[in-house]
Amino acid sequence: MQGVIVDNPASPSAAAAEFVVLAPYLAGLSPEAADIVGMMPIGSVNETLLAALPVAGLAPPRKLVAAVFLCDPFLSGRRLFERLRARGVSGVVNLPTTSLVPPGVYRQALTAAGIDPGAELAALGEARQSGLEVMATVASYDQAARAVEAGVATLLFHPGTPTGEAALDLRLVEGVVASIGRIRSMPQRPRVALYRHPGFGGRLAPAGDLVEDVLDWAVSAPRVGVEAASPQPV
């Protein structure tokens, strides 16, 4: 299936796609900025999402997956998931995600505070209990294995952030192909969608051949001083 990640559910890209990942927090960010500052305090991912969702009663895109931040210490997951369902959302994906935080002191500190991929998987489990489809963002085979072990059947493979150095990025892509190959051979046979990060260009094509679904960047272009939709309390 062909999916797109958008900031606006009414965009033409969303209308043409088979599935849509709605991530309004990304509005005005570049794909590279999204990977890093998407995890920074530049706004509330979840409140912005609720503000951007179609009004209840209107037909949402074919398959609408909401990008949610699941490590919010003030989040009432069940309440958020119920509201998402009521607004026509069929599934959730953990974006932005701590899975993209590289190993180091910062990740250790986050983990010590309970802000880690394990917490996100637990919240995804709650989303599933609320009747939503769940998709887990992973950036490695190990993360994929933990997600599948936690009962997640659909994965969104994030290739990481391109460095801009061709040789380095090529090695990154080789790693992506290898990881996806291993995931495909898992006995649980999870369904895998590949996020075709624009920063890698066509270099991700071999990885795209290995998966059922692809997700392309279709967020509105970066602008300085862009005002996001007024956030709604979660």
Binding site: Y25, G38, M39, M40, P41, I42, G43, S44, V45, N46, F69, C71, D72, P73, F74, L75, P96, A109, L110, A113, I115
Partner: peptide, 12 residues
């Protein structure tokens, strides 16, 4: 919440 939550995308 712990201080480190100030680094998260939970508010502007």
């Amino acid at each position: 919440a712990p201080s480190i939550a100030c680094m998260l995308p939970i508010h502007n």
